[in-house]
Design a protein around this nucleic acid. Structure first.
Lengths: 287, 287
DNA sequence: GCAAATTTGTTCGTATGTATT
DNA sequence: CAATACATACGAACAAATTTG
């Protein structure tokens, strides 16, 4: 079997991109490490369809023979593919080529019909149904704690001011889809929004409920979208590979009233391998 | 030294989240693997500040002594932290705790002053300057090729219709920041937008240029935000860890004219560790 | 339902190569 | 050049999860 040497690789300034770099040894160009060349061979087989999504990659014992390398080296090659999100391994079962799920599309801009922000309440349910899927939410876990860091900052509260948090697990077609936590100033309860403390779903959506109970009307919101490695809870809930090779989206949504005062912060976490975000922007009423 | 066993771990249905799961062996709860417990110890030292960002983690040889584990096991622990994006390793130098750069904020919704979409032309320059940084772009690489897959789809063209692509590397403060490729139907040139073929920067922005040359006015756009592992070119350009532990954002922006016909597709790639996206949504003129 | 076979996961040992200081 | 530190590669043994007979 012949492993093609790599012949082109862009080299930017700065720290060398070891071990992708073509290594020069004694004036001649050295090859990339064995495990990377094996990984490249396997990657080609996946991309050409020789190994189709869902099918089993030959077991390590077989690859050891095929590529005349030790088992550890084969494992490094497979690990490389795993890190790239191309395969998944399970003890006892084997290594399967990943078949990417049809991503769920989350529209972050408001629905022009309902005015609901994407990923929330009625708009969320509607969007799930529009994609012919079934939405389900776990019952909220309600807590009161002191606002720290970004939570206090986004809500415009003093550090250590008390906030109500409402945490929910959400599912689509019974697969875990998002973890969502909303934070409200604790004085909303004293002012009459007592259902915020109840561990029942607020059917009409908390934004509508707060408008009815307190007269606070949502006039705008800001989303902040970041990506990071999942923590232990997220790995367990979304059933992600434990090594963090599948990242998660984390969105911060700060809702503001007509005076531009923030009154709600919602932190949502989505697995990045099964979601994408959409934005629809209309420029016709811009200057 | 005492390594704390893990006492709580959410177990969802479906495939067990090996190896995070508490393993039961003969009726007793087994511990997580040694390398994960060592990684956890080190992670704690990082998060409590005992190992501060930028500082060197003790070398493998020292950790071998500290934790009474073999060098391979230590390497597994360090690899775990590397995959989580907490440390970076360099041969000869050592293992450093990552100091996260101040993320650059990209506003995807249009600027209410200029009407420019986020991350583009004038709005991009302005946003960079507003964050006290310096923007620079490489000269465009112009190509003509046949539209494939999503490119044809988003532009509403037949598969294999020809498109112009304009590819640019962009820098902020001289660090590589984004890779951007815009696609236009090839007949734009015949209709008069000849500068699209020139490898010179189009100062006023291509959207403005097309409006002047062809009378096509941008009335709306749609963004699609996804996350994936970087490819080899992106690893080299952004100087990312070669194992794909830092993912990239990929955004598809489809610009439409007043008749809602797509006329431009821009694909941008950003390193996810140094960027975040912002959305500003005004609901006051919604129903 | 159980036992055996298969397959990946963990851990050790050892040697050598490459990059940086 | 020498010392230090991480990277690659091989061999070996046992554990844990799954599938198969």
């Amino acid at each position: 079997m012949w492993l093609a040497p790599v012949t082109s690789c862009i080299l930017p300034s700065g720290r060398p991109a070891y071990p992708f770099r073509l290594r020069r040894v004694g004036g001649t160009v050295a090859e990339r490490p064995l495990y990377q060349r094996i990984a490249e061979e396997l990657r080609l087989k996946i991309e050409t369809g020789e190994l189709s999504p869902g099918s089993l990659v030959p077991p390590e014992s077989q690859l050891t023979v095929d590529y005349k390398a030790s088992r550890n080296t084969i494992r490094e090659a497979v690990r490389w593919l795993k890190d790239l999100g191309l395969v998944d391994t399970q003890p006892g079962r084997g290594t399967t080529v990943i078949s990417k799920p049809v991503p769920f599309e989350i529209t972050l801009t408001p629905d022009s019909e309902t005015g609901f922000g994407g990923g929330e309440g009625a708009a969320y349910i509607a969007e799930v149904q529009a994609q012919n899927r079934v939405a389900r939410a776990g019952s909220p876990k309600v807590e009161i704690h002191k606002a720290k860091g970004r939570i206090a900052e986004e809500l415009g509260l003093a550090v250590d001011a008390e906030v109500i948090s409402r945490h929910q697990q959400r599912y689509i077609d019974d697969t875990p889809w998002s973890l969502q936590t909303s934070y409200y100033p604790v004085d909303f309860v004293a002012r009459g929004a007592t259902r915020l403390l109840s561990a029942d779903d607020i059917e009409e959506g908390t934004v509508r409920y707060i408008e009815g109970a307190l007269g606070i009307k949502q006039a705008s919101y800001t989303d902040r979208i970041t990506v990071r490695a999942p923590d232990v809870n997220e790995v367990a809930f979304f059933d992600l590979p434990a090594n963090g090779s599948v990242p998660v989206f984390q969105t911060y949504r700060t809702a503001r009233d007509t005076e531009a005062r923030p009154f709600r912060l919602t932190v949502s976490v989505f697995a990045a391998d099964r979601n994408e975000f959409l934005l629809n922007v209309d420029l016709t009423d811009m200057p």
